[in-house]
Computed example of a mutant assay.
Amino acid sequence: MKVFILICCFWCFSAISQTCLVDFDETAQAQEFLDNGDGTVTDQILGLTWMRCSLGQTWESETCTGDASELTWQQALQTAHGYKYADKLGWRVPNVKELSSLTERKCVRPAINEIFFPNTPSDDFWSSTPSVIDPQRSWVVAFFNSSNSIKEKNLFVFTRLVRNVD
């Protein structure tokens, strides 16, 4: 019975942990990011500073704690407006290309570099990019598997903020 419980616990743990392919090159390479020591990282290639945690989470003891908030697209945009974090203003919801740059395509659940973005929900995140064919929808990036799609703006989705480097 103890062996069965141990196997079940291992299976449950492995089912929720990140899985990465070893034969693929990293797409979100560690050397691209600079840890700013304040809960943010800078993508040195794109010149963007990212919050390490999703909105709703707290940067604490080198990790993201708490539950990420799910917001509608409008709520995400409104929350970003005037948001102050790490003593900086200018935070915004990233466009779909910027947000996609964080995806680690060799990994799933989540498809992101967990060293720099720990405890990221393996789910959709809002971009600021609206759909050109349907004004009721906007683009999201799925950190489950690195895919992009459009979702209705009134759905509740996770958000990570970005700002341009000064």
Rank of each mutant, 00 (worst) to 15 (best):
N164A: 07
S138K: 02
S146G: 03
T159K: 00
C12Q: 14
W50K: 05
S149E: 05
P118K: 07
I133P: 00
S147H: 03
C53T: 08
A30C: 03
L77I: 11
N148A: 08
G90D: 07
C20M: 05
R109C: 08
D123R: 10
L89T: 15
S69F: 11
M51Y: 03
H81R: 11
L102T: 09
P118N: 05
S149F: 10
N119M: 10
S54K: 07
L6Y: 07
V157Y: 00
V140N: 02
G56N: 09
R163E: 02
L55I: 15
E70T: 13
G82I: 13
A28F: 01
T49D: 08
I45Y: 05
L55V: 15
E70I: 08
P135S: 14
I133C: 02
T72C: 11
S131Y: 09
Q31A: 09
I115V: 13
G90V: 12
Q136F: 07
V108R: 13
V3T: 14
F13V: 06
M51F: 04
L6A: 14
R163S: 04
S61I: 07
D166C: 00
N164E: 13
L34W: 01
F158K: 01
F24E: 12
W50C: 03
F158D: 01
K2P: 00
S138F: 02
D87P: 00
A76G: 07
S138T: 02
A76L: 03
N95S: 06
I133M: 09
F158R: 02
G90T: 14
E98L: 05
Q29N: 09
R92Q: 14
Y83C: 01
A86Q: 04
N113H: 07
T79Q: 07
P94W: 10
P135L: 02
C107D: 08
P130C: 05
A28M: 06
Q74E: 15
E70K: 15
I115C: 01
K153W: 03
D123A: 15
L21Y: 10
W50E: 04
I133R: 14
